[in-house]
Structure formats: structure tokens, C-alpha cells
Amino acid sequence: MTAFLKPRAPSPRWRRRGTVLALLAPWLIGFTVFFAYPMASTVYYSFHRFDLFTAEFIGLDNYWYFLGDERAHLAFRNTLWLVAVLVPAQMVFGLGVAQLVVRLKAGAGFFRTVFFLPSLVPTVAGTVGFVFLLNPATGPVNGLLSAAGIEGPDWYGDPAWAKPGLVLLALWGIGNLMVIFMAALLDVPRHLYEAAAIDGAGALRQFRSITLPTISPVLMFSAVTGVIQAMQYFTQAWITSRVAAGATDSPGSSYTPGYPDGSLLTFPQWLFQTAFRDFSMGYASVLALIMFVISMLFILILLRRFRAFGDEGA
């Protein structure tokens, strides 16, 4: 701005700074409006009873309520379960499928397409589809099981099976991970394997001492982003419990969040329910802050591991 008033041409340094600012401007505004301000505001609301109409200061009451809110604790445990089970399951399965596909001699392209395809299915459609497939009375899965003489479980109606049912859904959509792992596997220099083979190392040995160390940065990155995604796990669980409970959005419909027994109630769902269904937005802000702190822990791990991101040329 000041440069504009000066009669002589702006110095290259100022011009450069102006260019950078112009290029970054949209994002800078976005960062302030959609990130910095809301973060501060969340802290502010967490001390209030806020329902969009009025905000009343209530000190730490929202925080005290969290300590006794068993559904929040349940939701927290469910989300931890997903982080601890869903993420490793996806990684192992994704790596296994990738290993298989890169070794195929015939039809590798076809199989890659088949394994990738389900990951394109819109989340909502896939979820509704799985609730039907795993319906104990009308779904084909239990139908096939009983044809084989096995009494299938009540999947999304049984708290012991509901989350494993969601893991199945997630494994079905493994496509992205498979492609990423395939790329990593193909990057492993082939001469390493040849040298190991000459030394008489078996397939397992080769996997442990060559494949894993070489692709470990990719594995690590996928693990951390997987954890962060698992912490946001919402849509599949939200829809599954509503459809499986037979919720009809009508009076007398006895839908409880996270049906059955709250086993599908994840932390983001409880936050959503609290903020945008019950409109206890002050308390929801407390839940949001808890989510922030935990996410930050994982993000810091990621950033420490990949300091190279900030560097030139990576």
C-alpha cells in the first residue's frame, strides 16, 4: 500500500512480498475465518451454556459434566476401539492385497480394478448396502451362512458384532490403501531381493528385512492419517445405527444414538448430537476441545516423523 503512494517503482523485494500476499490472500482469509477465529471461539463457548439463542456464563460446569457423562466416555472408548482395531486391520489387509496384486502374472490390471472399485462406492450407499447385506433375517450373508449350517450373528443389532461389521465395510473399501502400497512395493529396488535370494533368505525373511524397512515411511504415513481418519469416523456409524435400528423419524420411534447399546456411538457423533440435535453447544465445545487435544497429539507425532515436509525439495 505504501509503495503505491511512492512515485518511483516499488523495489523488487516489495513487489515480491506483494505477489506472495496476493497469492496467499484467499487462504489467509480462510485460515482466519474458518480456523483461527473458530478455535478461539470454541474455547469461549466452552465456558457458557449456549444454544444459538443465548449464551450464559457457567464457568467450568460443562467440563464437570463431561467427567460424569457416560455416553461421552462410551463414545470415546468406541473411537479408541476403531483407532486400535480398524486402522491396523486396514493396513494389514491393504498391504496383503497389494502384495498379492504386484505378484500376479495374469490379470493384474483386472484384479487391481476389482479391488479398487468398492472404494469408489459413495459412503452412504455402501453403508446402507451393508446394513441390508448383514441383516440377520433378510440379508444374503446370513442366508449363505445358514445354507452352510452356520447360525450367523445379528451383526448391526448385536453390540459385540456391530463394530466388527463396520470393519468389514472398511476392508471392502481398501482400494486407496492398496494402490498406495502397490506403488511403494514397486519402488523397492529389485536388486535387494536378488542379493537376499543369493544369501538364501526365504520369502518371509525378505519381507521382514527388505520390504518392511523400505516401505516403512509409507506405512507410517498411512498409519497416522488412518488414525486421524478413524478419529473422525462418523458417517458409516451414524447411518448404520439409524438404519439397523429401523428408526423411522416418526413419533414413538425409539431410536437411540449409536444403536445397539451405544456400541456404534463414536466421539464425533456424540459431538454432533450434542451440538446440532440437542443444541447444548457449550458442552459440545468441550467435546470439540477434547478432540482437538487428542488429534494434536497424533499430528505432532506425524510432524516429528516427517520434518522433511517443510524442507526444500523433500
Binding site: 486421524i228 473422525q232 446440532f276 478432540m291 497424533f298
Partner: peptide, 9 residues
């Protein structure tokens, strides 16, 4: 990386 729910309110 931060979940969008954190700033949703």
C-alpha cells in the same frame, strides 16, 4: 489434519 468437528460449533 485437524478434524472439522473441532471447529464446527
Amino acid at each position: 489434519l485437524l478434524p472439522p468437528q473441532v471447529v464446527a460449533v
